[in-house]
Structure formats: structure tokens, C-alpha cells
Amino acid sequence: MRINSVVCIKQVPDTTQVRIDPDSGSLIRQGIPSVINPYDLYALEAALKVRDSHGGTITALSMGPPQADEALRKVLGYGIDRAVLLSDRAFAGADTLATTYTLSAAIRKIAGELIAAGGAGVDMVFCGKQSIDGDTGQVGPGLARRLDLSQVTYVCSLLEVAAETRTVRAWRQREDGRELLEARLPVAVTITEACNPIRYAALPDLLRAAKAPVEVWSAADLEVEPDRLGLKGSPTRVSKVFAPPARERGETLSGPDRPPNEIAAALFDKLAERGLTIGGSRG
């Protein structure tokens, strides 16, 4: 049985370069290069693996400004079947709730088209474990709920997809260990960097990608209620952004002729002033 997948791709700024403008207090994003959210490439590789062994199709889906087409063009180079960009001013300013609303509408449409073409709809939705900008990890689970998919997050190894029984097994990373989970298809998985890194794309795929279209869908192309899109459809509001206060340089305890034992005593006095005492009894 063939497995049809959708891989969610987010274009993000190279966050190491994002800063708060100390004068205006606003985010400086201009001139900062965009990259594909790194976890999404792990997700893409996981989807490619599934297609390698089961056949089927992979559609890359991204919501973002028109320039996000660059990210999709790049993932087309890995030999996927289709790339869809959701781009419309109405989508702008979405929090995760509005994002999953929009993405799920698009996934439904993709599934409908696959069925119309004689296929079985979408079996697997792949996301990265989180984005490096918004960094919430909320989109994958949100899609699972909206689309009635089994939810398996923080996958560190996607073991097998049993097409006959329509189940998938995956190891999920937790703080205290790993758990092996079994879920029924259709499923939404979020993929961590413990999975395989993206493969080296083959030249024929890159050549095909150079001429493959990135389809752009606007709100009018989706079955959506306008009030649930973008900023309007977002319950959360960013009320303020600011730079994390830098740690300030503290006190120097050493002096030209200060002996080490005095320095040590001074340190633990200072610590005691801050409530950090040595050896006292609790309570």
C-alpha cells in the first residue's frame, strides 16, 4: 500500500542573527537570511524514507510570505511530488491556533485531491519538533487534533510503517528516557534531530525541481472562515518584545595583594548575603 505524506515546512530567520533594536525596542529582521527550519529537514528525510519503502507521494506545505517559496523550491530538490505555499495577507500574524487552522484546511484539500486522483488521502503528516523562531512545538499536535490524526511527538526514531495493518511504530524522546509507541494511521508525527539528517539530493531531482512549480494558495483557495485566519483568528497577542537583559559584569573580589583565603572568605560572605549559606540547617 502506498503512503501519502504531507511535510510541513517553515521558513525561519537565522535566529542567531535576530536582535532587538535597542532604540526602537522592535525586532530587527531586515537583512537576516532565511533558512528552512532545521527540524523540518529531518521531518522531510523521515517522509522520504517512508516513500522509499512504500511508494506514494510527498507534498511539502508551508504557510508564509511569498518569499517562503524559496524554502519550498529547495525541498522540491529532494525529489518530492508537490509543493504548496499558503500565502495571503489574511494569514499573517497567525499564532499556533490560527496556523493549524489554516494548515489543516490545506491538508484537507490536498487529501481531497489525492482521493479524486484515485488515491487514499493523506496518511501521514510530518512536522519538525519545533521551529527555531516561534519555538512552541504546538503546530504538530494542533494539526493532529484538527485532522483527527494519531499524535506522536518528539520522535527520535521512526521505526516502521506497516501498511497492511495501517500502523506505525516510533520511538519518542522524553526527558527521562524513550518510549516505543504504536499508532494507527493516519498519524501526525513531529521529528527531532535524533532522526536521520536529510540525504544528499540527486542531480536529476534537482533538475526536475528547477522547473517544478511551487503552487500558491490563498485564503480563497481554502474552505476557511475568514475570522479564524491570521491575527484575527489568533487568541494570543504579543504585547511586548524586548531584549533579554544582558548579565552585568559583577564584582571583582581579588586584589593586588589579597591572599586567596581572604578572597574565599569574601566570596562566601557575599553568597551568604544573597541567602546562599553553607551548612546551616533547613527551616
Binding site: 505555499l85 503552487e215 494558495w217 480563497a220
Partner: peptide
Amino acid sequence: MNGSQVHPAGGDGKRRPAP
């Protein structure tokens, strides 16, 4: 923007097999 419109940015959009 219309459905299934081809974004012109990355190519001429004519799906053409490589020679």
C-alpha cells in the same frame, strides 16, 4: 493570487523535463 498559480520567482514555471 489565484489557486494553483505558478509563482514566477524560481523558474519559468513551465514544467519541462530536463533534456
